[in-house]
């Protein structure tokens, strides 16, 4: 392709327009729907950028955090800053929670826009009934165009949202998998250890007193409790992660369901519009036919009346 823009502006009367400096994007919008659409879009883009930037830190195998060292909130940090970041498990959970609640709020906002489109759609009169002929076709078409336009905007937002949600899902999935692998390695190690060390001999409970003092036993019990608690805590977190994964998948399926509904609705609208165009052109052809037919009839009638008139005249003369 070749740009002819500068050549074009050179030929216009106000040839001093600088093609490179034309503001491409508006700052304010007269259509509130579009303004809201752009706002949601920006939120989604920010989320996507954030997820891309935090990916490294999120998947790093660390258990201590240096979040407090950051100068700005997480979302506003640069890639360099976030690449040095280290997170613990709780903070990872927090990030997940934050992003998924942002996604939920976007879904909520999109749903509101959807309501608006539905309302606009309900205002479009059905294409049947004898009153149809009396309606102003240009007005009808304006509403339809607007609904199609807004539906596409919604489709775009939902598709973007679905992308962000799948990015989050993949991150979580990866984290879960890595966690699982780590646990597998640890458990392998633990189960292998006793067999490797043949010296480990099980001591019957009755003889414990002879091997350990009371204090040592108490300490061991406490340690055991702590270990058990830790294990339970890990299990709980595992369940939570599973649950949030399920949540995300549900969100995703919801979004994709919405997407398919939306796209089928928009495609239906487009087909309707095409049908209208077809029937319009059919109608035009009919009109042209009707016109030619009526002109033919008029000519025929004219001829008949002329002949009859002449006949009458001649009869009048004869009589």
């Amino acid at each position: 392709m070749t740009s002819r823009t500068n050549e074009f502006f050179g030929l216009t009367k106000n040839g001093d327009i600088d093609a490179a400096n034309i503001p491409l994007k508006r700052i304010s919008y007269t259509d509130p729907f579009l303004a809201e659409g752009y706002r949601i879009h920006e939120t989604i883009v920010n989320l996507l950028v954030f997820l891309k930037k935090i990916r490294g830190a999120y998947l790093k195998d660390r258990t201590f955090s240096n979040v407090q060292r950051l100068s700005k909130p997480l979302m506003e940090c640069s890639l360099e800053e976030l690449s040095k970041l280290e997170l613990d498990e709780v903070q990872r959970d927090e990030i997940e929670h934050e992003v998924s609640s942002a996604i939920s709020s976007c879904i909520h906002q999109i749903a509101k826009l959807q309501e608006i489109v539905k309302e606009q759609q309900s205002q479009i009169p059905k294409k049947s009934g004898w009153l149809q002929g009396l309606r102003d076709p240009s007005k009808l078409s304006k509403k339809e165009t607007l609904v199609a336009h807004h539906s596409s905007v919604l489709w775009y937002l939902q598709s973007e949202l679905s992308d962000v949600s799948s990015v989050l899902y993949h991150l979580q999935d990866l984290r879960l998998k890595r966690g699982q692998e780590k646990r597998n390695i640890a458990s392998d190690f633990l189960t292998k250890n006793p067999t490797d060390e043949n010296s480990a001999v099980e001591i019957p409970e009755s003889e414990l007193q002879t091997f350990f003092t009371q204090q040592q036993l108490q300490e061991l019990e406490q340690e055991n409790d702590v270990l058990l608690q830790e294990f339970e805590h890990t299990m709980e977190r595992l369940r939570d992660t599973g649950k949030s994964l399920a949540d995300i998948t549900r969100l995703q399926s919801e979004i994709s369901a919405q997407l398919s509904i939306q796209s089928s609705a928009a495609e239906k609208l487009y087909d309707d519009a095409l049908n209208v165009m077809d029937s319009l052109s059919g109608g035009n052809q009919q009109l042209i036919k009707a016109k030619s037919r009526s002109s033919r009839t008029a000519r025929l009638l004219f001829c008949i009346f002329t002949v009859m008139g002449l006949l009458l005249l001649s009869l009048d003369r004869i009589v």
Partner: peptide, 29 residues
């Protein structure tokens, strides 16, 4: 687009004062 037609396009845009609304003109092949 031929040079003559582009000139005509620019002239029409100037006449109707719409040239500022045209952001790009491209030959796409």
């Amino acid at each position: 687009i031929s040079r003559a037609l582009l000139e005509q396009f620019a002239e029409l845009a100037s006449k109707t004062n719409t040239s500022h609304m045209i952001h790009q003109v491209y030959d796409q092949y």
